[in-house]
Every structure is written in C-alpha cells, then in structure tokens.
C-alpha cells in the first residue's frame, strides 16, 4: 500500500507540474476554448484494449512458503466521454478487465525443491467514472482521477499441486471457479487514476495511450470468519484506444 501511495503521489505531482506550466502557454480563443478544433465537440465515444498487471494484496502470516504474485491479463471495453470545458472532461464506460494472480509455494526438502502453483484468472466487469483533466494543443496530456464499480463476472482456476499420497506429483487442474456466496464478494469498487495522451488524426478520430490504475477498495472476500484476512486487487492497465468525436 505504501508503494502505491508513493507511485500515485509521484504521478500526480508530475502531472500537476506539467499542467501548471502548460496552462500558461496553451493558446486559446476569445471564448476560452482551445484552438484544437476536436475539443469543440463535447461528446465522444471510444474503444480500448489494454494489457493488465494485477497485484494482489493480502497477508500470508505464518504461511511463509506461500506467496501471492502479480499476473498479466487483458482488458477491453468501450467508453463515452463528455468535455464541458476544454481542460475538464468526464469519462465512463464498460470494461472487461482481467485481475489475475498467482499463488506459489515452494519448500526445499533434502535439497529437492517441492512446490505448487495455482493461478486465478479473474474477469471483472468494471464501470469507471473519471474526471479527465487535460492540457496541450496538438497532443493533449491527460490526468484521470475517479472511481469505479463493477462485478466479479467469472473466474478460472489453473494449477499444479503436490499430491504425494494419491497420484503422481504435478497434477494439473484447469477448471471454472465456482463462486462461493459465503466467501466471495463479487461487488467490486475502488479508485481510478492514471495518465495518458491523445493524438488527433482528424477532427473526428483520435488515438489514446494511457496508463491506468484500478485501486480496489472492496475486499474480494466477505468477512465470514472472526479472524478475517482482507484481500485487495490493484490493477495496472497499459491501454491503447481510439476515440471518435461526435
């Protein structure tokens, strides 16, 4: 969590500095609107594709041979934008986002390493709602701040495990995860933030490249036991998309 704070603070500070410098130099017309004609169009729609890296945050306590590790995945979706001011817009959309993670455990017995690994491939449907603060003329630089809500749509469990008593080691399992209503909190919500840039190809079409974070604030496990260990996802997206101005 401290690491996330640090990264977030650095990013926001850098963006704020860049923004503060550029507002002094960004040309505008008499009405205060930017020269860039694409921004005269208030509504836009777009499609996005992203690679994701999800970092699970939970505690292993005494289970020191076990670790929860980040895992990559894919995200795709569509967004709608509204730009009431030249420096401020809003964006929402619907995204399918992979929030995967890997659980590994390793132990060395008589110089032989034993272990197991299982991968949770989670698919979330997320609806972000972000403020889009932007600067620049031809190329515009964006700072996104907002929140999201969503639903843990489906999951798959893939892994290998030590089954020393029954069958050979390294048995693989690859199965759809069956949600447990006692354990799994399928409602998902948290913060969105990120940086991006947009390059207009024409008055109607532009390209977006963005780095976004989905910082989960909902524990993915319900509190169904007294000594509950919380579990959060933080998902980074490196996203590319196309925006169509209406």
């Amino acid at each position: 969590m401290k690491k996330n704070f640090f990264v977030l603070t650095i990013l926001v500070s850098l963006a704020a500095c860049a923004f503060a410098q550029s507002v002094e130099t960004t040309p505008s017309n008499e009405s205060g609107q930017p020269v860039n004609s694409t921004l005269e169009r208030k509504w836009s729609v777009g499609i996005d594709l992203a690679g994701t890296v999800n970092s699970p945050a939970t505690d292993v306590a005494f289970m020191t041979h076990m670790s929860y590790n980040p895992r990559i995945g894919l995200s795709y979706g569509a967004h709608v934008g509204y730009q009431p001011f030249k420096w401020l817009g809003f964006r929402t959309g619907l995204y399918s986002i992979a929030k995967n993670y890997l659980i590994t455990r390793t132990i060395t017995i008589n110089d032989v390493e034993f272990g197991s690994a299982s991968m949770m491939l989670n698919t979330y449907l997320n609806v972000p709602f972000m403020a889009d603060l932007s600067i620049g003329r031809k190329v515009r630089y964006h700072l996104f701040l907002g929140a999201y809500a969503g639903y843990w749509y489906k999951a798959k469990l893939i892994g290998s495990a030590q089954v020393v008593t029954i069958v050979d080691e390294g048995v693989l399992y690859n199965q759809d995860y069956e949600f447990n209503s006692t354990r799994d909190n399928r409602f998902d919500a948290g913060l969105n933030y990120g940086l991006g840039l947009s390059i207009p190809f024409s008055q109607r079409v532009g390209l977006n490249v963005e780095m976004l974070w989905y910082y989960g604030l909902t524990d993915i496990h319900k509190v169904y036991m007294r000594e509950h260990s919380p579990f959060y996802n933080t998902t980074f997206l490196l996203q590319i998309g196309a925006t169509f101005n209406l």
Partner: peptide
C-alpha cells in the same frame, strides 16, 4: 490455500 477458511486449491483428480 490461504488463511481464509474457504481458501482452497482447485479440485485435483484422485
């Protein structure tokens, strides 16, 4: 597989 009571590995064939 985890501290939670219902944290399990996947089902492995016996």
């Amino acid at each position: 597989e985890g501290l939670g009571r219902l944290d399990y590995t996947g089902w492995m064939p016996v």
